Computed example of a mutant assay.
Amino acid sequence: MALFNLGHEPEVVATEQRPMNFVPASKHFKRRGSLRELDAAIQRLKQDPQPFEVVLDDRRVAARPLTVEGRLHGLWYWSSRADVEMHEPPPAGAWVIDLTTYTALGSAEWAEMADIPNEVRGQERHVAAMFAQVDTSTGKEAHALSLIEAKPIGAPFQAEWIVRRTDESRWRSLFHLRIQGVERNGGVHRVALGLSQNIGELDRMSRRRTLEDVMHVGLRAAREPGEYVALMSAKKLALIRWLTDPSPEIAWLGVAHEATPAIHPDDIDEARRILHVGTSDWGSLSEGTVRVMGVDNRWVHVRARAERVEVENGEEAVAVRVFVPVTSLPGEIT
Rank of each mutant, 00 (worst) to 15 (best):
L6G: 01
P10Q: 08
V12Q: 02
R18V: 14
M20F: 15
K27V: 05
H28G: 08
R32I: 03
L35R: 07
L38G: 13
A41C: 10
I42Y: 01
P51A: 08
P51W: 14
P65W: 15
G70H: 03
G70N: 06
R71L: 04
R71A: 04
W76N: 13
S80E: 15
G93K: 08
Y102F: 15
T103I: 01
S107H: 11
E109A: 15
A111S: 14
E112M: 11
D115F: 05
P117T: 05
Q123D: 01
A129N: 02
Q133I: 08
Q133P: 12
E141P: 02
I148H: 04
A150G: 08
G154L: 08
W161L: 05
T166M: 08
T166S: 15
E168H: 11
R170S: 06
L174Y: 09
I179F: 03
H189R: 12
R190K: 14
R190I: 15
A192P: 00
S206N: 04
R207G: 09
I240W: 01
P246A: 10
E249K: 04
E249P: 00
I250V: 15
G254S: 08
V255K: 05
A259W: 01
I274T: 09
V277Y: 09
T279Q: 11
S280E: 14
W282N: 06
G283R: 12
E287Q: 11
E287W: 00
G288M: 06
R291F: 04
V295H: 08
R303G: 10
A306E: 06
E307N: 11
R308D: 03
E310H: 01
V311Q: 03
N313M: 08
G314C: 03
E316N: 01
E316W: 02
R321I: 11
F323V: 13
V326D: 05
L329N: 04
G331R: 03
